[in-house]
Design a protein around this nucleic acid. Structure first.
Lengths: 145, 145
DNA sequence: TATTGTTATACTCTATAACTATA
DNA sequence: TATAGTTATAGAGTATAACAATA
């Protein structure tokens, strides 16, 4: 038998729909913090590679320079990050995560866990673990693309 | 131990990223057909509920009227669907899938299967089946929201 | 007065490209 | 001449709201 003779039964179709639903729910619950999902990825990247230049962050996230500047502007206005002048190269700013930014990332992570609870509700505990492992495998395949 | 103490390890985060990557790849391979991913969902809905009004299709897909009209315009220009005048209610058009539209849906389905092959490459056969079953469970939970 | 379809419009998002200041 | 950052601008996508025809 064919694995998925209907378009809407393909894994890709379901992944797209689920991903979209997830991000919408995440965005909604994130609203009180004044940020959007894209800012969260950036916050995580900043914590992971502290004191990095804006363009380097952009390359790591595959985001064009003008977009990174806007996001950094947003986060700076919220006090989540600071632009620290680089004395060696006065064109550069090193991006530093503030305490407030770290707290914000922690809150965002908690919200993401709540969204997981909501989205994964139809699955039992072991099923969730299985799903997470499978998604992890697929995600590592992504970064090579 | 906590299931996912990092934001980027949550299932929701991975679902979002994978869904986005999937839809981008789908869009790219779909380009030669002259349509976008959103048109495919509409084509599938039209086949599933033939001779339905535009607004009813919009409600089924959770799409606003103006957007449905534009998509129907696109598909009609490609010869994939026809607006059939409803003689009983002259405000309405019943949307009919043409042979060309059916062929287009079939091509789109084949492309979706190719995308599945590409995205699911890191998984073995039984893992893919497991994933599909889990995604199916989650997808049925979606429509209730 | 409500409903189907349509059009006009505004808004958001994102990317491209031009510009500055440094190197 | 090249690079980090910034700003200006244009494009696509989507939603809101006004509108015409019909019920």
């Amino acid at each position: 038998m064919k694995p998925s003779s209907h378009l809407t039964d393909t894994s890709g179709y379901m992944l797209s729909k689920l991903g979209q639903a997830t991000i919408e729910q995440f965005a909604q619950r994130l609203r009180p913090l004044g940020i959007r999902p894209k800012h969260c990825g950036l916050l995580a990247a900043i914590r992971h590679m502290p004191m990095t230049s804006q363009l380097a962050l952009g390359q790591a996230l595959n985001v064009v320079p003008s977009a990174i500047v806007t996001m950094i502007d947003d986060l700076e206005a919220l006090g989540a990050i600071k632009r620290v002048a680089d004395e060696a190269d006065r064109r550069r700013y090193a991006i530093e995560l503030t305490e407030k930014g770290a707290a914000m990332l922690q809150q965002a992570t908690a919200i993401a866990q709540q969204v997981d609870e909501s989205i994964l509700a139809p699955l039992g505990k072991s099923e969730r673990d299985t799903l997470r492992q499978l998604l992890k495998k697929l995600s590592t395949g992504l970064s090579q693309a």
